[in-house]
Amino acid sequence: MKGRAAAVAAVALLALAGCAGPAASSSDTATGSSSAESSGSGKLTGTVTVFAAASLTDVFTALGDQLMADNPDLEVRFNFAGSSALATQLTQGAPADVFASADEAQMAKEKDAGLAVDPTVFAQNSLMLAVPPGNPARIAPPQAAGIPGLADLVPADLTLAVCAPEVPCGAAAAKVLDSAGLNGAPDTYEDDVRAVLTKVELGEVDAGLVYVSDVHAAGDKVLAFAFRESSLAVNRYPLSVLTDAPNPAAARAFVDLVLSDAGQQVLRHAGFQEP
């Protein structure tokens, strides 16, 4: 898998687009008149703080670098963690400009708290079964045609890591495990999806349920299998400028960049699906 290389290529493409056109934004949610100005090059200053789900680490870092390259006086800062932890931090008054969550439940918390208005779904992600490169448990799909069920892939004595049900990837994992009749299969409930991925990469578990995008990000450090039940738990990723954003113009520009064709292309290359 060449996910990382593809993402880099897409960013390079994005850089070209940024140089050629006056504005890369093609957002359908641009509300304020500030949007047209803010996505122009070199206008934005100060710091913009983005709270984003752990699964967005690579993509958003690339997009943030892009925005900073276009706006030399702007600094884009990220706080990547499990969406639920981020939602809690925001509710407790953490200063941030943008929140991007890995599911709508966490964004709903911010809406209820009056911190986010009109979030836009910008990507979708579903689960895959990732295994270490050596595939120590010798997981193999059965010969039958079509996408295997999770139960066909996961034998009873497998060491399996999943996300804790408190975080979005864990809620999705719980759904697919439940549907596959494998509720008892996990051996550890990790606090975010990157922790699951790390344990798979280290070869300490036989398999882990991670997002398709994480499989892309891990490159050849993991192998992965698709399974039928993944369609039951597709996470929709919303993002929103926060109402208390200290730097609303830059926040809007970041959101527009994510929603733009170029931003969406980076997301596609990283394994995220179209909303």
Binding site: A161, A164, P186, D187, T188, Y189, E190, D191, A195, K199
Partner: peptide, 12 residues
């Protein structure tokens, strides 16, 4: 949480 993981009853 890194080395032992998180499983109710055994490592949580």
């Amino acid at each position: 949480i890194t080395f032992a993981g998180n499983f109710p009853g055994t490592t949580q």
